[in-house]
Design a protein around this nucleic acid. Structure first.
Lengths: 250, 250
DNA sequence: CGCTAGGTTGACGATTCTCAAGGTCAGTGG
DNA sequence: CCACTGACCTTGAGAATCGTCAACCTAGCG
């Protein structure tokens, strides 16, 4: 089973076998976490950062009136790395949306690897750029798209990001978000999500049932969303990357 | 005249005189740029990244239908560092909102400094965390706050971030955003901005005239906004930081 | 077999948008 | 010196998207 985190970094920068192995070394003690569990809570001391190896999680904030806004999805390969204030205290909550396989990497350990292999630091910086691009696209999504476009865009983004880590992903995918989750991710109400979801179904664009999402017409869905994958386009993987990742996982 | 970028990094991490001097070295050739000029355009090769030493700039995206969404404000001390795709191509546009003093730092030069002084890399990572926190708060702002709250929040954020770089900032500040800019930053229309701005004025919270903003009652404004500065709270500066920055600027 | 999380539907209301017109003010050229 | 221009701001009326409230349905699960 290959490591989604290494896969992500491979998309971010060219790393030598030695460098990949050093990162892999950090992922030696994964643990399984059930759905709806906190990975970090507001105010926690962040001596380590979680990396999602499989499953979905979400970062969110709660407002005074109890409203929740999800600010980012953590898909397989994503790290909660650039997300603590300088004094090392978590400022947002992270919750699993499905059962997940998680590694907690000590900041000190990662730092040691980066000191030894600056290219790893570069890869993390590059990964941070992609995170940044995703967050910016969320601001655009919530700020300037209507409900239908937002939903379509979120689905396109998730599908595209998953395809980076799982090259053999087809039109069917695991999609654990409830309508309440979708509402909190897109800045809408569950009722409105429900209605627009029905419209996407009626337009023959998707099927969504018991956490399985089928995209019937990706091209049209992207058209509706105004989705252009360029903003999170990876460095193109070299043909050898895949076999190298396998070798290291072994 | 002290360097806003060094000031920012000082808030992000503890840096030695030597490390600060190395970064200062990178800022030796600033240039003055007029308002409404592009700092980088979609598709530009990003061999260097701009740092704003004074003035305001904005990152934004344009949608198919011509709508614009500002995704981030670049205030003095901010860097456009985590913002290129892995192949080094700019994915968003950056435009000056006022006349600005800008330095373009070569990625290669920054990398050399980081290789020599890993703490600078840590400071940049920490700066990236703050950027990330700001972007997340924008998602929350646009996703879950109404028009009045959004405006109040943007003002509080700008005021707070400016105060980090200019400790003697009082209730009056330079605020170059037009109502159209505000609309594009907050995901609203200029007409609605106008109306809610009047409400903020009527409520005796602010005065805004010819790019000068006066906050009459910061506490109440924060109350309206639901603003809590914790999410971008810096490492508390040591008393000596200020004099050290002065010494290096000399 | 009932409980509960999650999904669906309807009626009504509110925030925000659209369109369209007019106003102010600083700068510019005749 | 003054009319003109363009950027920016203001105002009104009507429409649309989205929200609120409240009820009911469905399916998985202990």
């Amino acid at each position: 089973m290959s490591n989604a985190f290494l896969q992500r970094l491979t998309h971010a920068a060219v790393l030598s076998d030695e460098e990949l192995a050093a990162v892999e070394e950090l992922c030696r003690q994964p643990k399984d976490v059930a759905a709806k569990k906190y990975l970090s809570r507001d105010g926690d001391e962040m001596v380590s950062f979680p990396v999602v190896l499989s499953g979905w999680a979400a970062r969110y904030q709660i407002l005074r009136d109890g409203a929740r806004q999800i600010t980012r999805l953590l898909l397989p390969g994503d790290a909660f790395y650039f997300d603590s204030s300088p004094d090392g205290v978590a400022i947002e909550e992270v919750i699993t949306l499905s059962s997940c396989r998680i590694v907690n990497i000590l900041h000190a350990d990662m730092r040691r690897v980066i000191d030894r292999f600056p290219a790893v630091g570069e890869a993390m910086r590059s990964y941070g750029s992609m995170e940044n691009a995703v967050m910016a696209s969320w601001v655009v999504n919530v700020g300037r798209r209507d409900a239908l476009e937002r939903m379509a865009h979120l689905i396109c983004e998730a599908h595209y990001r998953l395809s980076l880590v799982d090259p053999k992903l087809d039109e069917q995918m695991f999609f654990p978000l409830t309508q309440d989750d979708l509402a909190d991710a897109l800045g809408l109400t569950p009722v409105h999500i429900n209605r627009k979801l029905q419209q996407l179904r009626q337009d023959q664009l998707i099927t969504l049932r018991s956490k399985q999402l089928i995209i019937h017409d990706l091209r049209s869905l992207q058209q509706v969303a105004g989705f252009d994958s360029a903003y999170l386009a990876p460095r193109t993987q070299t043909p050898r990357d895949e076999e190298r990742l396998k070798a290291i996982a072994a």
